[in-house]
Structure formats: C-alpha cells, structure tokens
C-alpha cells in the first residue's frame, strides 16, 4: 500500500453536517399539477400571451359588436365623399367609392378571421387524423398517406390556391359571402394539411414507442383505446402550436389571394379586398389611410395569432420546462 500523502488522509465528514435523507423520499407538500395545468400557469405569467389576448379580444369585439367601434354603414357609398378627408364619425375619411374607411375595416374583420379560423380547424382535423393513422398504424397506411401528403406538399400553397380558385371562379361565379368564404377555406385547407400531418405523424411515432403505451397494451387496452387515451393527447402540444401560428399565415394568404383578385369577391367587405382596391388608388397619393387602416388591422390580427402561438409554444416546450 502506498504511503498516504499530504491532502489524501482519511477524511470522514461529521454526520451532523451531512445528514442522511430517507432514500427516495416523497415531497408531500407540493401542489399536484399535470402538464396542461403547468402550461397554463406559465402562460398566465407570459407577457406575450396577454399582449396577444388583448389584440385578439379587440378583434373579437369588432366581429361580434361592430357597433361599438363605428356607427357608419360599410356598404353605403356615395361618390360625393370620394377620398373625403376625416370628419366627425368618420375618423379615417372615405374610399374612392366614398365608403367609410373605418367602418369597412371594422366590418372586414369578420371575413378574414372566419377564413383563418375555419381553415385552421379543417387543416388541424385533417392533419391530425391522417398523421395519427400514418404514425400509429404504419406500413401500407403510412406509405399511402405520406406519399399522398408529399404530392400536396409539392405544390406551394399560394400557387395551388391560385389555380383552384381561378377554376372555381369560372365554375361558380356568384356564391355570396359564405360560398366565397368556403371556397377560399377549402382551397387553403386542401393544400395546407400535409404540414400538420407530418408534425402529428412525427409526434405519434415518437410516443407510440414509449413504454407506457406498451404497458397499456399489456393491461389489455385495445389499439384504438391506446391511440385515443394515450397517444393523441400526448401528441397534441406541437400541433396546437403549429395550428395557432398557421392561423395567422392563412389570414395573410387570404388577403394575398384577394390582392390577386382571387380571394373573396369584391362585393364582400374584407381587408384583403379593401387593401387591394386601395393600392391602385393611393398610387396617386390621395388618402393614404384608405390602405393603411385595413392593412394595420390585418397586421395586428396576424400578430395577435402569431404571438399567441409563440406564447403557447413557450408554455408547452419541454425544454423550457426543465429550466
């Protein structure tokens, strides 16, 4: 045995300085919390979330109670007021046709948000179902769904919508508010679902191999029950985040289509139409508010949804959770 050198003498810490803890003791004091409750707690303390909520509440009020914001009729136009300046009750003046800019902006919220919401719901449903089936059942099902979504994914969203709507415009020229909204929604959803499918499929693939799923099978839970009770709930978080953010993207896409004359028909009051109409008018530099007001409303709405998505992502992100 080597001699003991300085600094390496036998040392035993005094027991009162290093008290032993019961092995694997349970902390009985903490308040029990599951993942969703924890996420909500983080969400509540996030300034991003409250900013997003504030924006979205204002937009919601615009949709349900437009009279809170303006008393003017968005559809009443008189050429006498063409490019009229701001006046009492008409804070941003008039469009070329002589309609109230602010009233049109307030009433335009309905079309944009409806399209965004409906498209998101449809995309999320389609994507979650196909993604869950592809990921969980695998094999031929997976190959079919994956190749199918690849095909839809290979056509850029806006390009695809341009074609679909140009064709449908010829087929059903007059389709009213809901008809035109549904055309845009269906066109967007048809080509946007593969993104959610991929995300869902990835999440399901990861979760289905976790041991708690095997444990449930060993207990006797059926495949369907496993998918419904264990796999889908655990795969939801990333899909929720992606959907919230894509809501904003869809609203932008709708307005881009309107800009190209392919969104909602011009008789529908919508931000996209107003901005599009305003472009040709403000080139001559008259009332700039004709464009800026609906554009600002659009940008704020999109920002609201993107911020909400960001806040939800931070609240659900497992990495952020560890810190």
């Amino acid at each position: 045995m080597p001699d003991i050198r300085p600094g390496q003498e036998r040392f035993v810490a005094p027991i009162d300085e290093t008290p032993l803890r019961a092995i694997d003791a349970v902390n009985v004091d903490a308040v029990p919390e599951n993942q969703w409750k924890e996420a909500w707690k983080r969400l509540r303390t996030s300034p991003l979330f409250w900013l997003a909520t504030a924006i979205l509440v204002v937009i919601a009020l615009m949709i349900f109670f437009p009279s809170l914001f303006t008393s003017a009729d968005p559809e009443r136009a008189s050429l006498d007021n063409s490019f009229g300046p701001a006046s009492d009750g008409h804070p941003f003046g008039f469009t070329q046709q002589g309609a109230d800019v602010w009233a049109r902006t307030v009433h335009g919220a309905r079309a944009s948000v409806t399209i965004g919401l409906l498209t998101t719901i449809l995309t999320a449903l389609l994507g979650m179902i196909t993604g869950a089936i592809a990921g969980y059942y695998g094999g031929l099902m997976d190959t079919l769904i994956s190749r199918f979504s690849d095909i839809f994914f290979s056509i850029p969203l806006l390009l695809a919508c341009i074609v679909v709507i140009s064709v449908l415009n010829n087929t059903f020229p007059n389709r009213g508010f809901w008809g035109s909204v549904m055309v845009v929604v269906l066109a967007l959803a048809t080509f946007a679902w593969p993104q959610i499918t991929r995300q869902m499929r990835g999440a399901v693939l990861e979760i289905k191999n976790l041991e708690f799923v095997d444990a449930a099978t060993a207990i006797g839970a059926s495949k369907m029950k496993n998918l419904r009770r264990h796999i889908v709930p655990n795969a939801l978080a990333p899909v929720i985040v992606a959907s919230t953010i894509s809501l904003g993207v869809f609203i932008v896409a709708e307005s881009s289509l309107s800009f190209l004359g392919l969104g909602l028909p011009s008789n529908v009051v919508s931000w996209g139409n107003d901005i599009s109409a305003a472009q040709n008018q403000v080139r001559s530099g008259q009332n700039l508010d004709v464009m800026f007001v609906p554009a600002a409303a659009l940008a704020f709405t999109v920002l609201g949804f993107i911020l909400l998505g960001e806040a939800v992502r931070e609240a659900l992100d497992p990495k952020a959770r560890k810190k």
């Binding site: 045995m1 003991i4 390496q8 036998r10 040392f11 035993v12 810490a13 300085e17 290093t18 803890r21």
Partner: peptide, 9 residues
C-alpha cells in the same frame, strides 16, 4: 448531495 462525506485510501 454536493458534499464530500468520506475520502481516503
């Protein structure tokens, strides 16, 4: 738990 409790040969 962060402390050296015993050391030696």
């Amino acid at each position: 738990r962060g402390k050296i409790v015993e050391s030696g040969p």
